[in-house]
Simulated assay, not measured.
Amino acid sequence: MKKGIKHIPVEAIIWIAALIYLAFISPEEPHFTLCPLKNLNFHFCPGCGLGQSISLAFHGHFIASLKAHPLGIFAIMVLSFRVITLLKTQFITTNN
């Protein structure tokens, strides 16, 4: 098991960490951001809207999620599929 954990692809770790972060933050409250548009006080940023949409979906606010960004729920599915594919590919090639 230790051998497998050491070989988890960095991309998978980044996506897992991002999804966990979005699942645990409160989408209604302001939070730390690296977004240059948000930091310059622009009120609309497609990337921030997507992150907020994902966070809202994780909290069960699906209508608000679709209003924040229509692709938020789709992004969760795509990122989840990507993580599963990365892990599956890594562990199939490692175990053979």
Rank of each mutant, 00 (worst) to 15 (best):
N39A: 07
A12S: 05
H69Q: 02
M1V: 08
E11D: 15
R82F: 12
P36N: 01
C48N: 01
A23Q: 11
G60I: 04
S26D: 15
I76G: 00
K88W: 12
A12Y: 02
H61V: 07
G47V: 05
L22Q: 02
P27D: 03
A12C: 05
L19G: 01
V78I: 09
W15R: 14
F62H: 10
S80Q: 04
K38H: 07
R82Y: 10
T85Q: 14
C48R: 03
T89D: 12
N96A: 11
H59W: 04
K38F: 08
N41Y: 14
K67I: 05
N96C: 08
P30F: 00
M1N: 04
L34H: 10
L66T: 06
F91L: 09
T93I: 13
F32W: 08
L40E: 03
N95H: 09
I54E: 01
A75I: 00
F74R: 05
L79P: 02
W15I: 13
L66V: 08
C35R: 07
L56W: 00
I25C: 05
T33M: 09
K2E: 14
E29W: 15
V78T: 04
I84S: 12
L66F: 13
E28M: 15
L86Y: 11
K3W: 08
I73H: 00
F24A: 02
A57T: 02
H43E: 03
H61F: 15
P70F: 00
L79R: 01
T85W: 15
L87Q: 01
G4K: 12
I16G: 06
H43G: 13
A12T: 05
K67A: 13
E28Q: 14
